[in-house]
């Protein structure tokens, strides 16, 4: 068997015509059909009404009439507007425009708040003092330099002065970072290893490390990096 759209429409309309009856209690009220065409109707209600209409011969006819009348009124009104009637928008568009206006106002407000927050953040950042590094001074070792080779009897440790430093301590380590010697509390920024101590702890050809700890006036300690030096062979 073969069928096309026209034949299917014919068959379906004939089927609807056969079950045609006087408008019954199950048919939506004519007001509902008018609302479906002229106003906003909720999704569920729309589905309910159209579900019935698409299978009811009576309601199909009535709905078609409502659609035609609505179009005719719109057409006549548009012609009337051209002849001087007040121009107006359908209620749906008015409502949508009102909401669009509110939405635009809300978006504008949100934008203004975001802009204010960003401006405030930028101002706060600009007010903050620029801090480079940690803010604490560091202990910079001057001599013996890293990798220097020195005679055992002539070792003088020197470092840069640290602001607000109350005292310093010099520490000497062997190659395996075992502490060999620690100085007394020093107030100068240089210290010479006593010759007898140098002869006892330092050996020719070996490598050693040293560092300085500065104790600040507020009691905090600043420790320098380790610097390596070696003892030259032959005095």
């Amino acid at each position: 068997m073969r069928i096309d759209q026209a034949r299917m429409a014919e068959i379906y309309l004939a089927h609807l015509g056969e079950k045609k009856a006087a408008p019954g209690a199950e048919c939506p009220a004519p007001e509902d059909l008018v609302r479906l065409v002229t106003e906003k109707v909720g999704r569920k209600e729309r589905a309910r009404i159209l579900g019935h209409v698409s299978g009811c011969f009576e309601c199909v006819g009535l709905l078609k009439s409502v659609l035609r009348l609505s179009d005719e009124i719109d057409r006549l009104w548009a012609e009337g507007e051209a002849r001087g009637l007040p121009r107006e928008e359908p209620p749906g568009i008015r409502l949508r425009r009102r909401f669009q206006g509110r939405r635009a106002a809300l978006a504008g407000l949100a934008g203004a708040i975001a802009l204010a927050v960003m401006t405030y953040s930028v101002i706060r950042l600009a007010d903050k003092p620029v801090v480079r590094g940690t803010g604490d001074p560091e202990v910079r070792l001057i001599d013996p330099k890293k990798g220097a080779a020195l005679p055992a009897g002539d070792i003088e440790f020197r470092w840069a002065a640290v602001p607000r430093a109350a005292r310093y301590t010099v520490e000497l380590f062997d190659g395996s970072l075992e502490m060999l010697w620690r100085s007394d509390r020093l107030t100068e920024t240089a210290w010479k290893l006593p010759e007898e101590e140098a002869g006892r702890v330092l050996h020719e050809g070996e490598g050693y490390f040293w560092r300085v700890t500065a104790v600040l006036e507020d009691g905090r300690e600043l420790v320098s990096k380790l610097a390596e030096f070696s003892i030259r062979m032959g005095r």
């Binding site: 379906y12 309309l13 579900g51 209409v53 078609k64 659609l67």
Partner: peptide
């Protein structure tokens, strides 16, 4: 629903 309405001539 769409198909039935179309067959009904909408």
């Amino acid at each position: 629903r769409v198909l039935r309405l179309r067959l009904e001539g909408f």
